Computed example of a mutant assay.
Amino acid sequence: MRFLKFAVLIFSFLIFFSSCNQADNKSKIGILFGTYEAARWDLEKNYLEEKINELGGELITKITEGDELEQFAQATELIESGVDVLIIIAVNGNTAGSIVREAHSKGIKVIAYDKLIQNSEIDFFITFSGERAGELMAEYSINKIPEGNYVLMYGDRTDDNAIKIHNGIKTILQPLIDAKNINIIYEGYTDQWATENATFYTNKIIEFSDTEIDVIIATFNSVTYGAKAAVKKQGLENNILVIGHDPDLEVCQDILNGKEVLAVHKTVKNIAYKTAEIAIQLATNKTIQTTDEIYNGRMDVPSIILDPVVVNKNNIETIIFEEGFINKKDVLNYKPAI
């Protein structure tokens, strides 16, 4: 009997230490959010956490709102905690290379998420095709107004996405510009993608332009709403087509009501799940198969580039509501600001 009790005790200890060892062997994945303002980020965090947990890992999250110094401090904290992989949504893609170097000095691999980190040896990059998003915006514009005066308002110049969107727009518009069908009155970048900056720039463009504006391609909701506010203030909302939306409550309501509006969507579940899989593969030293590479000023970074999709009345149920990006009841009950 004493031997049996001793055997049970030993067996219990073995189970305990085995479970501790399994917990210690969990891949620890850190993520740095450079902003958390847009609705997509909370959903993406949840999808990342869900998939990483499913694959036997653990996600540790740090968030800042556009503060580079705070993001670096948060990165240092995650690095010192011993994460295996660091996912970075950089505040500034031009300066976040210092975080990459610090992580690599501790043997930690780095994924740049949806925003390229320039001049650094990042291990992987995953994003949506900014070029394709820009092409979709330009195609929609010329289908509506194939000739006229255009204003092109891009995002923040430190964000590689803004540059890629610029390139996609110009790919479609340039032949029409060369043929003198489209005249570019103004094009430029919008600091921090900020709505107030977009409003200010649009007011000045309208004020100082000696020709009527037909189209403003504003490339993202924060810029689009800023441009729209200025256009409305000038009493020109029926004269100028302003496009460049991601799907939000107002845009989705317009789509359900049959209004003609362009919404270009990045399917967040897709990018989050793929990023989780890549993070676990890097953490466990597995080979990642990809044929895409993007040059960041220092190296050709192994990459996965996903295509955005246009949301319309035929696909909004599956692409937006079933994904959980926006709740349909919230859309139906939404009352736009007057």
Rank of each mutant, 00 (worst) to 15 (best):
Y47K: 15
D123T: 11
V151G: 10
L86Q: 08
I99S: 04
T76W: 00
L59P: 01
I145L: 14
L86N: 12
D84L: 07
L59K: 13
G66S: 15
V91W: 06
K51N: 09
S120G: 10
A73N: 12
N149H: 15
L136N: 08
S129Q: 07
I88K: 10
E68T: 09
E80M: 02
R132Y: 00
P146D: 01
G57K: 11
G93Y: 03
S105Y: 05
N143A: 12
I108Y: 10
L48H: 14
D84I: 00
A73Q: 09
E131K: 15
I142G: 02
N149F: 14
E102S: 03
S81K: 08
S120I: 10
I108G: 12
A75N: 01
E50N: 14
E139P: 08
G155K: 08
Y150I: 13
T76M: 05
N119A: 11
Q74A: 03
K51Y: 11
I52E: 04
N119S: 14
H104K: 15
G107V: 06
A133W: 02
S105K: 13
V100D: 08
G130M: 07
G57Q: 07
L152H: 01
E70H: 03
G82M: 12
F124I: 05
G57I: 11
L78I: 06
D123V: 13
G93C: 15
E58W: 02
S129I: 01
D114Y: 01
T64Y: 04
A96N: 14
G66W: 11
N149C: 11
L59R: 14
M153T: 02
